[in-house]
Simulated assay, not measured.
Amino acid sequence: MSASCEIPSFKLFETELTYSFLDIQPTSKGHALIIPKEHGAKLHNLSDESLSDLLPIAKKVAKLLGVTHDDGPEGVGYNLLQNNGRLAHQEVDHVHFHVIPKYDKETGLIVGWPAQETDFGKLGELHTELKAKLESGKF
């Protein structure tokens, strides 16, 4: 545990750009956070340099927690979660990723996925709009 932090921090990995530690309000055993040292309230506010360090650390955390092996169709799983904005459930205005082990259906992240029926006409219109933005470079 770090003695220099106001909130207890149980460090897992640290690089020049990133810090990872165990979540003090976990949803399951081993729930960990990965944060960039560069401040950015949302993902798009971070430099590409900071972003390039986050996923390799997430991978190391998952391996460290032992959730990367497959034990049949159910096995052990994990979620990598990152929220942007209050509407998307972000409570801390600093980018952070959660690595949340999923050992069973009752612990870890519980997700509902309200999928909509496909409207290929609307989907095609959106695709055309997005392609125009890509081609113009104005996004």
Rank of each mutant, 00 (worst) to 15 (best):
A115L: 14
E129L: 12
G66L: 15
Q116W: 10
D71M: 11
T107P: 04
K131C: 08
E106A: 12
K138L: 14
H127E: 08
L33T: 07
A58S: 04
S9L: 14
L81D: 02
K11I: 14
T27L: 09
I35G: 02
A88I: 02
Q90L: 06
G121D: 06
T27K: 11
G85Q: 03
V67K: 00
L123R: 09
Y19Q: 06
I100M: 04
E106W: 06
V76T: 14
L134P: 10
E106K: 09
K63F: 01
V95G: 01
P101A: 05
H69F: 15
L123D: 06
Q82H: 12
T27P: 05
L43G: 01
G137P: 03
L126F: 09
I34V: 07
Q82E: 06
D48T: 11
G112L: 15
L123E: 10
H69K: 15
P26H: 04
L126G: 07
A88N: 06
I57F: 03
F97R: 04
F13G: 04
L17F: 08
P36G: 05
E38G: 04
S28I: 03
V67Y: 01
V92I: 08
F139C: 10
L46M: 01
A88M: 05
L65K: 02
K105Q: 13
E129K: 15
S4N: 06
T18G: 02
A3Q: 15
E6I: 08
I24Y: 12
G124W: 08
Y19S: 13
H127A: 12
I35V: 09
H96T: 03
I110L: 14
K133I: 14
E16V: 13
H127T: 12
A62D: 03
S52K: 05
A3D: 15
T68F: 03
I57D: 00
F97T: 06
N45R: 00
K60D: 01
P56D: 00
Q25C: 13
H31F: 08
V111T: 11
V92G: 12
E125F: 09
E38I: 03
S52N: 04
D53G: 07
A3R: 09
K60C: 00
S136W: 05
Q116Y: 12
H39I: 02
D71F: 15
D93Y: 07
P8K: 01
I100W: 03
V61E: 00
E38R: 03
P8S: 05
A132H: 13
P101I: 04
G75E: 14
Y78W: 03
F97L: 05
K105N: 14
L123Q: 11
Q90C: 07
L55K: 00
K11Q: 13
P114F: 09
T107E: 07
A132N: 10
